[in-house]
Design a protein around this nucleic acid. Structure first.
Lengths: 149, 149
DNA sequence: TATTGTTATACTCTATAACTATA
DNA sequence: TATAGTTATAGAGTATAACAATA
């Protein structure tokens, strides 16, 4: 961790600038290089969360994805309409709902994983071993960063 | 580089999934944690590019930021209206224009760099030395990735 | 009274299509 | 005929505000 009590170094600031710029640009690319044309990036991200968490309430999903509750309402409704999630009443709190992914979603995720290999291949061609390793090492840190605070 | 000629390994695919999800989520956070409320992420990114490249044509900027030419027209117009860039005729080709950042933009970037330290500080509190190092190592690779192909 | 989720609405950003001017 | 940039328009995704139901 950089010594921020006395101000960040120029190199730290530069790294953050670079990181931010790259994340924004990469985000725009990813938006277009969807493996599944019928799902938005956030919808995919929600399915990914449900695949690991099992199930969650709309409020929990909104906090995880860093969107506002009304946005998650819409996203969950779209996923439900596509048959990818199931909405059930919360067992303990009748205000809340429980969102679970369907078997169809699992099948779809497996399929999209195969499709992703093509994009991965073109990606990897432009990176050497070392760069690839750096990317893999940073992936979990980026995930942590996205969830911090 | 992973052995993609015979298909990517599960670990490679998992890394890409994780990366994509993190980039999307982080991108949404960055959208809201703007250091300058009056500039969109892409506007900031364009200024960052101009700060390093010196000057560029709208077409070049569109390709770098991965937006379509009409979008860059709008972005450049907004930056010009804010007095942050100057538009001049291209010396050799009268179809093109040259976009250059103003002194005001440099002042603003310096100011925003100071503001960014606050966000950097809260960020760094949640990361240890090792994680921070991984992030710094990956930043240039992410930039490369954003520009590939 | 606070919290969960929804409805209604508006905004921001970007894209596509069609156009103008220049090469 | 091709290219750089613009104008006009539409769409996707998200936010805010106001509301209903439950805690």
């Amino acid at each position: 961790m950089p010594d921020l009590s006395h101000g960040a170094t120029d190199a730290d600031v530069a790294a953050v600038n670079s990181l931010r710029s790259a994340v924004m640009r990469l985000g725009r690319r990813l938006k277009h290089q969807r493996v599944d044309e019928t799902l938005s990036p956030t919808e995919m991200s929600v399915l990914g969360t449900l695949a690991t968490c099992g199930s969650a309430t709309p409020g929990e999903l909104a906090r995880k994805e860093h969107v506002q509750p009304p946005s998650m309402t819409r996203i969950v409704a779209l996923l439900e309409a596509k048959g990818l999630v199931r909405l059930e009443p919360h067992p303990a709190d009748r205000r809340q709902k429980v969102v679970t992914q369907t078997e169809q979603a699992e099948t779809m995720l497996e399929e999209s994983r195969r499709k992703r290999n093509a994009w991965l291949a073109t990606l990897a061609e432009g990176l050497d071993d070392e760069e690839w390793a750096k990317l893999r090492a940073a992936a979990p840190v980026l995930e942590k960063l996205a969830h911090l605070q």
